[in-house]
Protein backbone atom coordinates (compact mmCIF):
# COMPACT_ATOMS: atom_id res chain seq x y z
CA UNK A 1 0.00 0.00 0.00
CA UNK A 2 1.25 3.43 -0.86
CA UNK A 3 1.01 6.01 1.87
CA UNK A 4 0.15 9.38 0.47
CA UNK A 5 -0.57 11.33 3.62
CA UNK A 6 -2.26 11.16 6.93
CA UNK A 7 -5.89 11.71 6.04
CA UNK A 8 -6.08 9.25 3.20
CA UNK A 9 -3.82 6.66 4.73
CA UNK A 10 -4.97 3.41 6.23
CA UNK A 11 -2.00 1.41 7.36
CA UNK A 12 -2.08 -2.32 6.71
CA UNK A 13 -2.31 -4.32 9.92
CA UNK A 14 1.03 -5.89 10.67
CA UNK A 15 0.42 -9.64 10.42
CA UNK A 16 3.26 -10.52 12.73
CA UNK A 17 1.73 -8.41 15.46
CA UNK A 18 -1.93 -9.13 15.01
CA UNK A 19 -2.33 -12.72 14.02
CA UNK A 20 -1.08 -16.18 14.87
CA UNK A 21 0.62 -17.41 18.02
CA UNK A 22 2.67 -14.96 19.99
CA UNK A 23 6.23 -15.08 18.74
CA UNK A 24 8.87 -15.39 21.46
CA UNK A 25 11.97 -13.33 20.95
CA UNK A 26 15.09 -15.47 20.74
CA UNK A 27 17.09 -15.37 23.92
CA UNK A 28 19.96 -12.99 23.53
CA UNK A 29 22.90 -12.99 25.80
CA UNK A 30 23.86 -9.64 24.38
CA UNK A 31 25.04 -6.54 26.07
CA UNK A 32 23.63 -5.34 29.35
CA UNK A 33 21.05 -2.62 28.69
CA UNK A 34 20.19 -1.87 32.30
CA UNK A 35 22.48 -2.27 35.27
CA UNK A 36 21.50 -1.19 38.77
CA UNK A 37 23.85 -1.40 41.74
CA UNK A 38 23.13 -0.72 45.40
CA UNK A 39 20.04 1.38 44.69
CA UNK A 40 18.63 3.01 47.81
CA UNK A 41 15.69 5.34 48.21
CA UNK A 42 13.98 6.58 51.35
CA UNK A 43 10.93 8.80 51.75
CA UNK A 44 11.40 10.39 55.14
CA UNK A 45 11.83 7.50 57.57
CA UNK A 46 10.31 4.96 55.19
CA UNK A 47 12.93 2.82 53.46
CA UNK A 48 11.58 1.97 50.02
CA UNK A 49 14.61 0.61 48.19
CA UNK A 50 17.40 -0.73 50.35
CA UNK A 51 20.19 -1.74 47.98
CA UNK A 52 18.75 -3.16 44.76
CA UNK A 53 21.15 -4.95 42.42
CA UNK A 54 19.78 -5.87 39.00
CA UNK A 55 20.83 -6.45 35.42
CA UNK A 56 18.91 -6.79 32.18
CA UNK A 57 20.19 -7.92 28.81
CA UNK A 58 19.07 -6.91 25.33
CA UNK A 59 15.95 -8.68 24.10
CA UNK A 60 14.68 -9.74 27.51
CA UNK A 61 11.25 -9.14 29.00
CA UNK A 62 11.59 -9.01 32.76
CA UNK A 63 8.61 -8.89 35.12
CA UNK A 64 8.91 -6.94 38.36
CA UNK A 65 6.50 -8.19 40.99
CA UNK A 66 5.93 -7.56 44.65
CA UNK A 67 3.29 -6.40 47.06
CA UNK A 68 1.79 -2.93 46.69
CA UNK A 69 3.92 -0.11 48.10
CA UNK A 70 7.15 -2.09 47.88
CA UNK A 71 8.73 0.47 45.53
CA UNK A 72 8.28 -1.03 42.07
CA UNK A 73 7.18 2.25 40.48
CA UNK A 74 9.90 4.13 42.34
CA UNK A 75 12.42 1.66 40.92
CA UNK A 76 11.19 2.30 37.37
CA UNK A 77 11.08 6.07 37.82
CA UNK A 78 14.69 6.04 39.01
CA UNK A 79 15.72 3.90 36.02
CA UNK A 80 14.00 6.43 33.70
CA UNK A 81 15.69 9.38 35.36
CA UNK A 82 12.41 10.80 36.70
CA UNK A 83 13.53 10.41 40.30
CA UNK A 84 16.91 10.66 42.01
CA UNK A 85 17.98 7.80 44.27
CA UNK A 86 19.64 8.44 47.63
CA UNK A 87 22.47 6.05 46.79
CA UNK A 88 23.44 3.67 44.04
CA UNK A 89 24.42 3.40 40.43
CA UNK A 90 22.14 3.19 37.38
CA UNK A 91 23.52 2.43 33.94
CA UNK A 92 21.03 2.64 31.07
CA UNK A 93 22.15 1.55 27.58
CA UNK A 94 25.77 1.92 28.62
CA UNK A 95 25.35 5.43 30.06
CA UNK A 96 25.73 6.25 33.72
CA UNK A 97 22.37 7.93 34.27
CA UNK A 98 23.13 9.65 37.55
CA UNK A 99 26.45 11.10 36.38
CA UNK A 100 24.97 12.40 33.11
CA UNK A 101 24.24 16.02 32.39
CA UNK A 102 20.80 17.14 31.19
CA UNK A 103 21.70 16.91 27.49
CA UNK A 104 22.97 13.35 27.82
CA UNK A 105 19.83 12.39 29.72
CA UNK A 106 17.69 13.93 26.97
CA UNK A 107 19.53 11.94 24.30
CA UNK A 108 19.22 8.79 26.38
CA UNK A 109 15.48 9.30 26.81
CA UNK A 110 15.09 9.26 23.04
CA UNK A 111 16.16 5.60 23.22
CA UNK A 112 13.96 4.68 26.17
CA UNK A 113 10.16 4.44 26.45
CA UNK A 114 7.84 4.44 29.45
CA UNK A 115 4.20 3.40 29.54
CA UNK A 116 2.60 5.01 32.57
CA UNK A 117 0.28 3.34 35.05
CA UNK A 118 -2.25 6.19 34.68
CA UNK A 119 -1.80 6.56 30.91
CA UNK A 120 -0.33 10.11 31.09
CA UNK A 121 -1.76 10.94 27.68
CA UNK A 122 -1.80 14.65 26.89
CA UNK A 123 -5.45 15.51 27.37
CA UNK A 124 -5.28 18.63 25.18
CA UNK A 125 -4.21 16.62 22.12
CA UNK A 126 -6.01 14.06 19.97
CA UNK A 127 -4.84 10.46 20.03
CA UNK A 128 -2.99 10.97 16.75
CA UNK A 129 -1.25 14.08 18.07
CA UNK A 130 -0.31 12.25 21.25
CA UNK A 131 1.36 9.43 19.34
CA UNK A 132 3.00 11.80 16.85
CA UNK A 133 4.20 14.21 19.52
CA UNK A 134 7.68 12.73 20.23
CA UNK A 135 8.48 12.62 16.51
CA UNK A 136 7.11 16.12 15.87
CA UNK A 137 9.20 17.52 18.69
CA UNK A 138 12.36 15.84 17.45
CA UNK A 139 11.73 17.34 14.03
CA UNK A 140 13.60 14.59 12.22
CA UNK A 141 10.80 13.50 9.90
CA UNK A 142 8.40 15.15 7.46
CA UNK A 143 4.77 15.62 8.48
CA UNK A 144 3.43 12.97 6.11
CA UNK A 145 6.06 10.44 7.22
CA UNK A 146 5.10 11.09 10.82
CA UNK A 147 1.43 10.52 10.09
CA UNK A 148 2.14 7.27 8.29
CA UNK A 149 4.16 6.05 11.25
CA UNK A 150 1.44 7.14 13.68
CA UNK A 151 -1.12 5.16 11.70
CA UNK A 152 1.17 2.13 11.70
CA UNK A 153 1.74 2.31 15.45
CA UNK A 154 -1.98 2.69 16.13
CA UNK A 155 -2.72 -0.26 13.85
CA UNK A 156 -0.15 -2.34 15.75
CA UNK A 157 -2.11 -1.81 18.96
CA UNK A 158 -5.40 -2.59 17.19
CA UNK A 159 -6.62 1.01 17.25
CA UNK A 160 -6.52 2.07 13.62
CA UNK A 161 -9.53 4.38 13.74
CA UNK A 162 -9.15 6.46 16.87
CA UNK A 163 -6.57 9.03 15.87
CA UNK A 164 -9.08 11.90 15.77
CA UNK A 165 -10.57 11.11 19.17
CA UNK A 166 -9.57 12.84 22.38
CA UNK A 167 -8.11 10.70 25.21
CA UNK A 168 -11.21 11.24 27.37
CA UNK A 169 -13.27 9.49 24.70
CA UNK A 170 -11.31 6.24 25.11
CA UNK A 171 -11.71 3.36 27.55
CA UNK A 172 -8.95 2.48 30.01
CA UNK A 173 -7.66 -0.37 27.86
CA UNK A 174 -7.61 1.83 24.77
CA UNK A 175 -5.68 4.52 26.62
CA UNK A 176 -3.10 1.93 27.68
CA UNK A 177 -2.70 0.85 24.07
CA UNK A 178 -2.34 4.46 22.90
CA UNK A 179 0.31 4.89 25.61
CA UNK A 180 2.10 1.86 24.21
CA UNK A 181 1.88 3.26 20.66
CA UNK A 182 3.30 6.58 21.85
CA UNK A 183 6.12 4.91 23.75
CA UNK A 184 6.98 2.92 20.61
CA UNK A 185 6.91 5.75 18.10
CA UNK A 186 10.65 6.42 18.29
CA UNK A 187 11.52 2.70 18.26
CA UNK A 188 13.06 2.69 21.74
CA UNK A 189 15.58 0.03 22.64
CA UNK A 190 14.35 -0.24 26.22
CA UNK A 191 10.71 0.12 27.34
CA UNK A 192 9.42 0.30 30.90
CA UNK A 193 5.81 -0.61 31.63
CA UNK A 194 4.54 0.69 34.95
CA UNK A 195 1.65 -1.60 35.83
CA UNK A 196 0.19 -1.63 32.30
CA UNK A 197 -2.94 -3.54 33.33
CA UNK A 198 -3.87 -1.65 36.49
CA UNK A 199 -7.63 -1.30 36.66
CA UNK A 200 -8.31 -3.38 33.55
CA UNK A 201 -10.50 -6.44 33.24
CA UNK A 202 -8.80 -9.86 32.84
CA UNK A 203 -9.49 -10.15 29.10
CA UNK A 204 -8.07 -6.70 28.32
CA UNK A 205 -5.14 -7.41 30.64
CA UNK A 206 -4.27 -10.54 28.69
CA UNK A 207 -4.50 -8.59 25.44
CA UNK A 208 -2.15 -5.93 26.78
CA UNK A 209 0.46 -8.50 27.85
CA UNK A 210 0.18 -10.27 24.48
CA UNK A 211 0.67 -6.94 22.80
CA UNK A 212 3.76 -6.20 24.89
CA UNK A 213 5.26 -9.54 23.92
CA UNK A 214 4.42 -9.14 20.25
CA UNK A 215 5.76 -5.62 20.07
CA UNK A 216 8.93 -6.68 21.83
CA UNK A 217 9.44 -9.63 19.52
CA UNK A 218 8.76 -7.52 16.45
CA UNK A 219 11.25 -4.80 17.37
CA UNK A 220 13.60 -6.92 19.45
CA UNK A 221 13.42 -4.30 22.17
CA UNK A 222 13.99 -4.94 25.87
CA UNK A 223 11.09 -4.58 28.30
CA UNK A 224 10.73 -4.22 32.04
CA UNK A 225 7.15 -4.82 33.12
CA UNK A 226 5.75 -4.05 36.55
CA UNK A 227 2.54 -5.82 37.41
CA UNK A 228 0.55 -7.44 40.16
CA UNK A 229 -1.20 -9.65 37.65
CA UNK A 230 1.29 -12.50 37.58
CA UNK A 231 -1.12 -14.99 36.07
CA UNK A 232 -1.60 -12.89 32.96
CA UNK A 233 1.94 -11.60 32.65
CA UNK A 234 3.34 -15.15 32.45
CA UNK A 235 3.18 -15.40 28.63
CA UNK A 236 4.95 -12.07 28.28
CA UNK A 237 7.93 -12.43 30.62
CA UNK A 238 11.20 -14.33 30.26
CA UNK A 239 12.11 -13.95 33.89
CA UNK A 240 11.08 -12.14 37.05
CA UNK A 241 12.37 -10.28 40.02
CA UNK A 242 10.41 -10.17 43.24
CA UNK A 243 10.89 -7.04 45.32
CA UNK A 244 10.33 -7.37 49.03
CA UNK A 245 11.40 -5.14 51.92
CA UNK A 246 13.42 -2.92 49.61
CA UNK A 247 15.50 -5.77 48.19
CA UNK A 248 15.38 -8.23 45.32
CA UNK A 249 14.00 -11.24 47.17
CA UNK A 250 13.98 -13.55 44.16
CA UNK A 251 15.25 -13.47 40.60
CA UNK A 252 14.77 -16.17 37.98
CA UNK A 253 12.37 -17.79 35.57
CA UNK A 254 8.91 -19.05 36.36
CA UNK A 255 10.33 -22.60 36.52
CA UNK A 256 12.93 -21.44 39.06
CA UNK A 257 10.14 -19.92 41.12
CA UNK A 258 8.05 -23.07 41.02
CA UNK A 259 11.01 -25.14 42.22
CA UNK A 260 11.94 -22.64 44.89
CA UNK A 261 11.68 -23.79 48.47
CA UNK A 262 11.11 -20.21 49.59
CA UNK A 263 7.49 -20.06 50.82
CA UNK A 264 7.11 -16.39 49.87
CA UNK A 265 8.22 -17.02 46.30
CA UNK A 266 5.97 -20.05 46.00
CA UNK A 267 3.09 -18.08 47.43
CA UNK A 268 3.56 -15.25 44.94
CA UNK A 269 3.87 -17.43 41.88
CA UNK A 270 1.06 -19.73 42.84
CA UNK A 271 -1.42 -17.13 43.93
CA UNK A 272 -0.38 -14.07 41.99
CA UNK A 273 0.19 -11.55 44.81
CA UNK A 274 -2.55 -13.05 46.91
CA UNK A 275 -5.30 -11.95 44.57
CA UNK A 276 -6.20 -15.54 43.71
CA UNK A 277 -6.76 -18.18 46.34
CA UNK A 278 -5.40 -21.71 45.89
CA UNK A 279 -8.96 -22.97 45.94
CA UNK A 280 -9.67 -20.93 42.79
CA UNK A 281 -7.34 -23.18 40.83
CA UNK A 282 -9.66 -26.14 41.09
Amino acid sequence: MTHTGFRDTVAEPMPSLREGPMPRAPKQLGEVVLRVRGLKKNFGDAVVLDGIDFEMRAGEVVGVIGPGGVGKSVFVKICCGLMEPDEGHVEVLGTDLLASDQKTKQRLRERVGLVFQNYALFDFMTVGENVAFPMVQRGLAKADEIQVKVQERLAEVDLPNVRHLMPNELSGGMKKRVGLARANINDPELIFFDDPTAGLDPVTSSKIFNLIRRTQAHRNSTCLVISHDIDRMRPACDRYILLLNGLVHFRGTEADAMHSQDPIVKEFFRKGDGSKKPSDER
Binding site: C80, Q102, Q106, R109, G113, A120, D123, F133, Q137
Partner: peptide
Protein backbone atom coordinates in the same frame (compact mmCIF):
# COMPACT_ATOMS: atom_id res chain seq x y z
CA UNK B 1 -0.64 15.01 39.07
CA UNK B 2 -1.66 13.05 35.97
CA UNK B 3 2.03 12.45 35.17
CA UNK B 4 1.85 14.38 31.88
CA UNK B 5 4.90 16.41 32.92
CA UNK B 6 6.81 13.17 33.59
CA UNK B 7 5.59 11.88 30.23
CA UNK B 8 7.13 14.92 28.54
CA UNK B 9 10.45 14.25 30.25
CA UNK B 10 10.45 10.58 29.29
CA UNK B 11 9.77 11.61 25.69
CA UNK B 12 12.96 13.68 25.84
CA UNK B 13 11.06 16.97 25.88
CA UNK B 14 12.08 19.57 28.42
Amino acid sequence: VTEQIDALRTLAID
